[in-house]
Amino acid sequence: MNKPRRTSLLALGALALALTAPAAVAAAPAQAETVAPLQKALDDLVKKDKFPAALATVQDEFGQERFYTAGVGDLKTKSEVPQDGRVRIASNTKMFTATVVLQLVGEGKIKLDTPIEAYLPGLVRGKGGDGRRITVRQILQHTSGLPDYDEIVFKGFPKSLGTYREPRQMVDYALKKKALFKPGKSWGYSNTNYVLAGLIVEKVTGRSIGDQITSRIITPLGLRDTYWPDARDKGIKGPHPQGYLATSPKQPWMDVTTFDPSSGWAAGQMIGTPGDLNRFLFALLNGALLDPAQLAEMKRTVAAPDFDSVGGARYGLGLGTFKLSCGGFAWTHGGNAPGYTTRNAVTKDGRAAAIAVTALPVTLKGAKNVEKALDTALCD
């Protein structure tokens, strides 16, 4: 689960493939030219693409925020969508994990071009890959060739959503599959890469990846609505819309707000808000979390053909890019988890936006329209 692959979001089967806050201002009336395009985009996600709810937070280059919602927060009670509510941010977790790894690189505890065998001796052995031939850089960049473990997440679905899994269990499952390609020879998104990155962090620090993300990123940045769920913590704390899942456009929505997030782990376990995602990404790209050398490494990208629906996307170390309709590109990631899809990005001049919908898309058109809403937020 939790992949942000922008072309592979068709219901459950696609999910198995995908696996100091600034001052805020209220949004202007819907008819105002600067607000209408994004509000209309969210309204269309609900009315035309049938998402139960959509919410967005946009931050301008001066740090001011605007909030938008559409739909209902709960299909049963018809409650309002909480403004900047908490959602499962899924694969956006990878940006946090990569940031911690790069901080440890700056501290001399990890080397990017050292084989992962040096940190996890004997762990990565199998049809899926060999840790003696895969570097830390390659797992952060998704150029390792390691296959994903995503099928295990949905074996026995929907009961499987309540199953707790250990990180090494997921790695072992992936290693039984055939490697995607030889290390460094291509690009292929795999949650397995970031489970291994989390295990490396724990090995070199002696502390859990969740503790490291909290102490190194969440607390210093004051991300009050972002957190790493405790072991077997299946709910979402604080104001949040319910999350839903359907296997086809004709199927009724299933409430999947509550489930065990352990299968995401360092690749996709976190919970947060669109506003906190904006603040994190803005801080990251402006050097608040990484020294210049490590930030430069993070921004060294390679072609990532399946990372967006437009084409031309590239991926660095836990951070990608996509083209904007108004010209140029934005730094991005995004994430998919049962019940929630998020798309978020920040531009070179400091504009940031994050969009969340409370389901995985059940059509390709719906998936693309979530991306278009993000482009609208940044370009209009």
Rank of each mutant, 00 (worst) to 15 (best):
D375G: 07
A353W: 04
Q294M: 10
V302H: 05
R133L: 09
W253S: 09
L19M: 08
I218F: 11
A356Q: 01
V357Q: 05
L123D: 11
D49T: 04
T57H: 03
Q31V: 05
D233E: 15
A359C: 00
D276G: 10
A18W: 00
L289D: 09
G73W: 09
R88D: 09
V87S: 10
F259Y: 15
P121G: 15
K323S: 14
N92M: 11
F329W: 08
G335M: 13
E117I: 01
Y189G: 05
K78G: 03
D49P: 00
H333G: 09
G350E: 13
A24W: 03
Y119D: 09
G145Q: 05
N336E: 15
L55H: 06
T97G: 12
T342I: 14
N286M: 00
G320W: 10
I134K: 03
L319Q: 12
V46F: 09
V201T: 05
V136F: 02
A231D: 10
L123F: 09
V153H: 01
D306A: 10
L289V: 04
L9S: 10
A24D: 07
T332K: 06
D130K: 04
Q103H: 04
T226C: 07
G238T: 08
V81F: 08
L10R: 04
L281N: 11
S262A: 11
K323G: 08
L221C: 05
A345N: 09
W265N: 12
W331R: 13
T93D: 12
G272P: 05
K48L: 15
S144M: 04
A367D: 12
L180N: 15
N369E: 15
G350Y: 08
T363P: 00
K299F: 10
G268Y: 07
Y315A: 11
P241C: 13
N193P: 02
L102A: 11
P22W: 10
K299N: 12
A118Q: 12
R5D: 14
D148M: 03
L317F: 05
R86Y: 03
H240P: 02
Q103A: 06
T135D: 07
K178H: 06
K76E: 14
D44F: 03
D148P: 00
Y164R: 11
L17V: 05
L374F: 07
T205W: 06
T57D: 11
D172W: 01
K127R: 14
T257F: 01
P158R: 10
L75C: 01
A11R: 02
W253C: 07
T226F: 07
P52K: 12
P252R: 14
R207Q: 15
T219M: 09
F259P: 00
N191C: 03
S325A: 14
L223M: 06
A26F: 02
V256M: 08
V310G: 08
A304T: 01
Y194F: 14
L38H: 05
R165F: 14
F307N: 07
W253D: 15
P167Y: 11
G275S: 14
V362R: 00
A356C: 07
D74Y: 02
L146K: 06
D276F: 06
P22K: 13
G328L: 08
S8C: 01
Q251P: 00
Q242M: 06
F282Q: 09
R132V: 00
T77M: 02
K78W: 01
L290F: 02
E371G: 14
N92K: 03
T97A: 14
D43P: 00
